[in-house]
Design a protein around this nucleic acid. Structure first.
Lengths: 168, 168
DNA sequence: CGTATTTATTAAACCAGTTTAATTAGAATC
DNA sequence: GATTCTAATTAAACTGGTTTAATAAATACG
């Protein structure tokens, strides 16, 4: 029983756009997807999903309401996709996969929680350095202004931080 | 089979302190527990757990490493406690409770995720107002400097925001 | 009670970001 | 290779916070 499907996307494609309902859960095999919203013309990057990430636009997925976000392929990508109905079937069928689901969710929760604390406790400069250390490849994969947004900065602000660092 | 126990704590007690290993998961029936760390003498509030919260110091709980945080009872509280071994037994025994566990984790994840975005997209003033609206009772229950810390501000900063608002 | 202690506010100097706008650098396209 | 378009940097004025320190208000307690 093959309950997921393999899909290949070109850079520039969208897995999800605003107004859409969310039917699928994704696993990133290879590539990069940027998860963002646009409010009042301002792009706000929430996450970059790269190799090994499970993801979707979770809140609309669960609540069965339309998305307000984009999942844009920012680098040619291979993803494994499972529909919501198939995911539920799998969980009904298998206690151990339900457990896997629980543990995955737990892991995602912890990641997020630690990220909150990182954000709260570190300066912007420190958070930039930490990102540079933990996910250096991002800086080759996505433009700097998206990284600035992800860090909660303006492009100008990030540029200033980089300058300050290069002068030391 | 009663797998949880009811416990009553007085204000000032600790469920968890640094160095301890985390054996239990908690459900807050009534009261308030403040979850914080102290680094370099600086208290950083991560969360206030009030009625209806499931909580523990999750990362050390899962990784089985010592905690670095405090769970301090900031208001007389009644909690239901379940040990890690009992929780695992329950999940082994019951697929539907495992599902409940997964869904609870999912809910916690979404809450957190939305909080991240709130933090990123809103000004400090807006986040203060939002907290005031969503959890007004907190301001009666915990001192303002802890709320400042929770919002990522200094007590002075929060006081200025309050003044600014009162002058409009 | 009155005194001691903790919490909240205020003031002043400072700083790391913002906004706006101009400039430079880099990529894509003809 | 020149042109065009997008991304990144720089500059200048500004803003919302910080830090430190003093003061005022609230709370605890002998």
């Amino acid at each position: 029983m093959q309950f997921y499907r393999k899909e290949v996307y070109k850079k520039g494609a969208y897995l999800i756009k605003p107004e859409q309902s969310i039917e699928d859960f994704y696993f990133m095999k290879k590539g990069c997807v940027t998860y963002y919203t646009i409010e009042d013309g301002v792009t706000r990057v929430m996450e970059f999903f790269t190799e090994g990430s499970f993801f979707t636009d979770l809140y609309p997925y669960i609540e069965e309401i339309p998305s307000e976000s984009y999942l844009e392929v920012t680098e040619d990508s291979t993803v494994y996709t499972i529909s919501k109905t198939d995911a539920l079937k799998v969980f009904d069928y298998s206690h151990s996969l339900e457990r896997f689901g629980r543990l995955s969710m737990q892991k995602a929760f912890i990641n997020n929680f630690q990220r909150i604390n990182r954000m709260k406790n570190l300066s912007n400069q420190e958070r930039y350095l930490q990102l540079l250390e933990k996910r250096p490849s991002l800086f080759q994969r996505v433009p700097q202004y998206l990284i600035a947004s992800y860090l909660g900065l303006t492009p100008v602000g990030l540029s200033k931080i980089r300058k300050r660092l290069s002068q030391q």
